[in-house]
Structures are given as C-alpha cells and as structure tokens.
Nucleic acid binder design. Structure first.
Length: 345
DNA sequence: TGCCGAATAT
DNA sequence: CATATTCGGC
C-alpha cells in the first residue's frame, strides 16, 4: 500500500519532471532567438535542463524534487523576465487580445481590421520590447482582471524595484523647490500609453489628459504624459527624416499613414548606429512602436461616415513619399480642428 | 483658469 | 537621450 503510494508518487514526480524539462526546452528554444539579449538566461535554462535530465533517468532517489527546486532557483533569476516575454509573445500570435479587450469593453464593436492590425502591432512589439522588467506603477484594476492578472503575476515576483512610484509621498514632503522625480516609462507603462493612444485615434489627436485617463495609472500626471507624448510625437514624425538626395536610391521606407499616424512599414531605426559593438543592433529598435490608429470608437462604431482617409503611396515613382488626404469629420468641437490641418501636411 | 503644444532646461 | 519645466496661445 504505502509502497504503491510512494511508487505513484515517484512516478508522478518523474512525469512532472519530464514535463518540466520539456517546458524548459521549449523556453530555451524561444530564448535562443534572443541569445544576445539574454545570454545568461539562455545559459541558465540550458544548465537547468541538463541538470534535470541528468537526474531524472533512473537514479532512484526521489530527490528529483529537490533537483527541480534547485533548477527553479537557478532559473528564478530570469523567470519573470521570461514569463513576461512569453506573455507578450503569446499574445502576439494567439488570440489573447489582452489590452485590446481591455479597452474595448462596452462598445461592442470589433473592427475586422483591428485584429490583424493588432497582430502586426504586437509582432512589432516583439522587436522592441524591453525584456528586463522595470518599474511599473500599480494599476488599480477591478473590473477587468483576467489577463491583467496574468501579467501581474509575471512581474509579481520582482521586488518593486519601483523607479516610477517612489514619489507621491516624497512629492508631498518637499516643500516645493525640488524637481519632480523622473518618471520612468517602463515598457509596460509605455504599452498602456500606446494603447491609450490607439484608442484615442493616434498621437496627434490624443491629448495628454485623455491619455492619462485611459491609462488609468495611479500617480501618473498630466505633465508626465504630456512630456512623453511630446517625445513620442517627435519620434513618430518621419522616422526616416533625410530627404536630401532625391536621385539616389530612395530606399525610403514607405509609410502607411492613418489618421496622422505614421507607420513605418517594416521598422524604423537608424540601424547603423555608430561603432555598433558587435552586440545589439536589434535591441535598439525603436521603443516607439508605431501603431496604426484605428478611428476612435466614436467614429467607427455607428456612424454614417468613416473618416475617409486616403493614403496614396508614391507608387510607381521613386519617392517613398506619401500623400495623405484626410477628410475627417471634425469632431464636434472645433477645438480639435487644427490638428487635422496639421496632419495634412 | 486649465489644458495643450513647443521650446527649453536639466 | 529621456524627462521635467517653462512659456505662450487658446
């Protein structure tokens, strides 16, 4: 009886271990792609796998468990990172529309486009996402756990290395002289930012306040968002700048412009950065993930008009230039009208 | 006033 | 650089 039990137990453990190894191996494969960014991680996982493997086959002892624990420890260091990575990656090719869902909520409008768009966008994220976790202000969520929870879990592990949340109290402390602490825009924060942007119709039409509201991040101030937005706009505006020579090869990337959003078709980055130590050429891909801007919900959902945005690419001819005509229905308030004008450039 | 965008300052 | 802060228009 007992024997049986322990036998079962043992079996179970072994099985578990096997699965564990498999999982690890899969992780390894995935990490391998980012070898350069996560050399240690790769190493650790590899090591873990090996140790695990070594232990499992036969070797009576039921120490398997201890072993796995050990490897867990070894791996622990990079696990959160890994998980975050996975989370992101997963969301990029499988349903799990995370934030999209997050915001969609009540307006039950699912643009057919949205999905594919999102996918593109997310696969883009893959390129620039910062793998190392960073501070993130806590998000007071209630209505919408689920995916959020998942993500939270992935970073729960790391001890609030919060670079962006020390304030609040300290801010109150100082009488009024000192500068605000720098808000650190973690990739997560940035993602929320991007999403907010997306839902507002793009960086050119979104205003700091709106964005902040949509982001629902505690302690995030208008000014911070404003500043970030400014930076973002700067970057998203003609990521390719140079137009000096027309004759030559215009490998000018062509852009897709939607609602004032410039979307580099493939990527943007002045790839040939300086001396470029052998290492990261890829790592430095813009953090400013470009994204298509679907029309704001108010428009797309139920309306006689979709904002007709005409995008003409300099087809045929050399220039990768794009002509954009945008006849948007200046939304109720004339205040925003000048944005449209700007977009027309 | 508050909010915003652009320009500066750190 | 990436943020913060200031400036000027609305």
């Amino acid at each position: 009886m007992i024997k049986n039990l322990s036998n079962m137990d043992y079996h179970k453990k072994r099985e578990r271990c096997g699965q564990y190894i498999e999982a690890l191996e899969e992780e390894r494969r995935k990490i391998h792609v980012f070898q350069r960014e996560l050399p240690l991680c790769l190493d650790l996982v590899t090591q873990a796998i090996e140790t695990c493997k070594r232990e499992i086959p036969e070797t009576t002892t039921e120490n398997v468990y201890g072993q796995s624990e050990c490897s867990e420890q070894t791996t622990g260091e990079c696990k959160p990172v890994l998980e975050q990575f996975l989370t992101i990656k997963d969301s990029s090719n499988s349903n799990e529309d995370e934030e999209d869902v997050e915001f969609d909520d009540e307006h039950g409008n699912h643009d057919p486009d949205k999905e594919s768009e999102d996918k593109n966008m997310k696969s883009d994220w893959l390129k620039y996402v910062q793998l190392w976790n960073q501070p993130d202000t806590l998000l007071p969520k209630e209505g919408r756990l689920h995916q959020e929870v998942k993500r939270d879990e992935s970073m729960k592990t790391d001890p609030m290395i919060n670079g962006g949340e020390g304030r609040k109290k300290e801010a109150e402390k100082d009488g009024g002289g000192g500068r605000k602490q720098r808000r650190c825009w973690s990739s997560q924060l940035h993602r929320r930012f991007l999403n907010a942007l997306k839902h507002l119709g793009g960086p050119h039409v979104a205003t700091p306040k709106q964005i902040r509201e949509l982001m629902k991040v505690e302690g995030l101030t208008n000014d911070e968002v404003k500043s970030h937005l400014q930076k973002y706009r700067l970057h998203s505006r003609r990521p390719n700048q140079t137009v000096p020579n027309n004759g030559g090869n215009s490998q000018t990337q062509h852009f897709v412009v939607v609602g004032g959003l410039w979307v580099p078709q493939s990527e943007y980055s002045t790839g040939k950065t300086t001396g470029g130590a052998t290492t990261s050429t890829t790592t430095t891909l813009g953090v400013y993930g470009a994204m298509a801007a679907p029309p704001p919900p108010q428009w797309s959902s139920h309306s006689n008009f979709r904002p007709s945005i005409v995008v003409e690419e300099g087809s045929g001819s050399h220039s990768g230039e794009v002509v954009v005509r945008c006849s948007s229905p200046a939304m109720s308030s004339s205040t925003r009208n000048h944005y449209v004008k700007k977009n027309l450039i």
